[in-house]
Nucleic acid binder design. Structure first.
Lengths: 140, 140
DNA sequence: GACTTTTCGGAAAATTATTATCCGCTAGTT
DNA sequence: AACTAGCGGATAATAATTTTCCGAAAAGTC
């Protein structure tokens, strides 16, 4: 995995730096779709001088080489996902966590849409909103 | 229509003002899902002293009484829609326009998701991305 | 391994959509 | 017509993201 990103960066003319590897590693080893701020604060202990701008600049590169997708689940900040499969996401309206909806087959639905529009479709994002199991319990 | 919003505003304790009616009218008579800025500039000629803050404040009220939904199709600003049906939207990656995808039945898809998650689902937004017919032509 | 070139990371400032504040004024009620 | 709660407009504040600038570090070359 570390090797994948090293090769990919270099082949696209980007330099391989510890910061870039670290940011990707945080994303890769996380299921919580962290925001830039979350990535930043998680790396504070390892790279005390890391700048938020570096997080943003790196994410843009990772998106460009297809290692990360950007989520916009309607909060005040973006979330990032190292899983670039096109899977739906769901956000808890109470605690704000964003989860994957795995094992969903969207192909039929997407194909239906593609037939009904004159657009040339290149991608899509499905966001669901609700209350996560934990928050349901707490409100009981 | 003018009557609907008048009654709705008043019944919820909001005052009925020319600005509020005008902002809703712009949204109601538009298929293009305007941003706050677009609403603002469209009303410049009629209300030269209108403030952007008024647009935002009014939209928040309209959302609260269920007359408007907020779209977050991944641009740098929100879009607003006076059609509060839960229909999918599609954005052109070239010119930025946002269109409705009408006549799409999402119920089956949504029900499938509802069965597969422990969340209590309360809503969803489907965004498609692609190239609109006009921009397809231009690029040929 | 030293040299060169190019890109990078960090700090700080800039940008920009949106929200909050404050105050004279207006809508709605009596 | 008077009263009062809420409003509109101007302005400042907020906050996420982007840009700028420069010393430093990466990668290719010898």
């Amino acid at each position: 995995m570390d090797n994948d990103i090293t090769v990919l960066l270099r082949s696209r003319g980007f330099k391989v730096t510890p910061q870039r590897l670290a940011i990707y590693e945080v994303l890769y080893n996380s299921k919580e779709h962290p925001s830039a701020e979350m990535i930043f604060s998680r790396l504070q202990s390892v790279y005390p001088t890391m700048s938020l701008a570096t997080v943003y600049k790196t994410i843009e590169i990772l998106r460009e080489i297809g290692l990360v997708q950007i989520l916009n689940a309607g909060e005040d900040s973006f979330r990032y996902d190292a899983n670039t499969d096109n899977h739906p996401h769901i956000r808890c309206l109470i605690c704000g966590r964003v989860d994957d909806l795995e094992g969903v087959d969207s192909h039929h639905f997407i194909n239906m849409i593609a037939k009904q529009t004159d657009y040339k479709i290149t991608g899509q994002q499905f966001y669901f909103y609700g209350i996560c199991p934990e928050c349901q319990q707490k409100s009981n």
